[in-house]
Design a protein around this nucleic acid. Structure first.
Length: 327
DNA sequence: CGAATTTGACCTGCGC
DNA sequence: GCGCAGGTCAAATTCG
């Protein structure tokens, strides 16, 4: 079975693939996860994010079930038929030229999927503490009132912010979809939208609507391939998926079923991310990616920041991915 | 009518 | 210091 997955995902292409640079942002060297997905009744009931794990760790079930709900009529995933020599660029070309709308009317169809994941320990904008936003607001309001005490407290806040910023984990996914905002089981409120430089597509900012949950996500479309949506999650959910979620995730997974160690919905990736990323050694550069592809891993061992520990880190980042495989 | 989205203004960090 | 870009706020608007 794992061989099947291998074939489906063209594991061979990974070496060049992993160096794909999207949007000229710092999300380069994105490790990716890929695998066949199953659409079932308008929902991914069993999507395999085939982390390129050592095959012994990769169960036929796939790395985990991807918790996105995708409208079959409006989305598809990366087609993993990649030119090995030219990497993902060719993947994009491939997709645009082949119009991979092999999707997926009614019933059930298995398609190939590909999602990239980037893990970052830092963020440009952190606000993982409830008070942070309010602090900002405070600043804003106080700017009008003035006051030296205010300015002093602002400085303190600023310093604290800086320290906190560095610890916020980020996870980025690249998904080939026509839907900008992918359902992941949680409830999000859009709080902003900005034009992105060099891109015709705006970036949308969402915040988890659950009280005291400070998870944010950014959604933007790649200007290089408009069919690719880059979703970046920041921080960790501190709550299960909302119970009354109309779009409860596959196989009836709801909050009542919630079990961080066993319900491998996409959201768990966030939820189970480590408490913090304080190990700067693991991340010497912003967005240093963790690539768990075995080939890539071997190839990059002589690199600067590809180390064994990164594999371990990813394990920690995605426990539901790794530990599920073990049995 | 409450919740969610839109959107212009504002804040912050960074490079020059 | 200035300008730019990213990120956030919050009033206005739209939606269900």
């Amino acid at each position: 079975m794992s061989n099947e997955i291998k074939d489906l995902n063209n594991y061979n292409y990974t070496s060049s693939y992993n160096h794909y640079n999207i949007n000229n942002q710092n999300m380069m060297n994105l490790p990716y996860v890929s695998g066949p997905s199953t659409y079932n009744a308008n929902m991914i009931s069993s999507s395999q994010l085939g982390f390129d794990l050592p095959s012994k760790n990769l169960s036929p079930q796939g790395a985990f079930d991807l918790g996105f709900e995708l409208s079959p009529s409006s989305s598809d995933f990366f087609n993993p038929s990649i030119d090995q020599e030219n990497g993902l660029y060719n993947a994009f070309n491939y997709n645009s030229s082949h119009k991979s709308h092999e999707v997926v009317g009614g019933g059930c169809a298995t398609i190939k999927s590909e999602v990239r994941v980037s893990v970052s320990p830092s963020s440009s904008e952190a606000d993982h503490h409830p008070g942070e936003d309010s602090g900002k607001i405070l600043k804003k309001r106080e700017a009008g009132d003035g006051g030296e005490d205010d300015q002093r407290s602002q400085k303190v806040v600023k310093t604290k912010k800086k320290e906190e910023k560095k610890k916020e984990p980020r996870v980025s996914f690249m998904t080939k979809t026509e839907v900008d905002h992918l359902e992941d089981g949680y409830r999000w409120r859009k709080y902003g939208q900005k034009a992105v430089k060099n891109s015709p597509y705006p970036r949308s900012y969402y915040r988890c609507t659950t009280q005291k949950c400070n998870v944010k996500k950014r959604v933007e479309r790649s200007y290089q391939d408009p069919t690719v949506v880059i979703t970046t999650y920041e921080s960790q959910h501190n709550h299960p998926i909302p119970t009354n979620r109309r779009t409860a995730m596959f196989s009836g997974t709801t909050a009542s079923d919630y079990n961080p160690s066993s319900s491998p919905v996409f959201s768990d990736l966030i939820m189970n991310t480590p408490r913090s990323f304080t190990n700067d050694d693991l991340f010497r550069v912003p967005y240093a990616s963790v690539n768990v592809n075995p080939n890539y891993h071997q190839q990059q061992q002589q690199g600067f920041y590809q180390r064994e520990s990164e594999f371990e880190l990813l394990k920690e980042m995605f426990p539901s991915v790794f530990f599920k495989q073990e049995h």
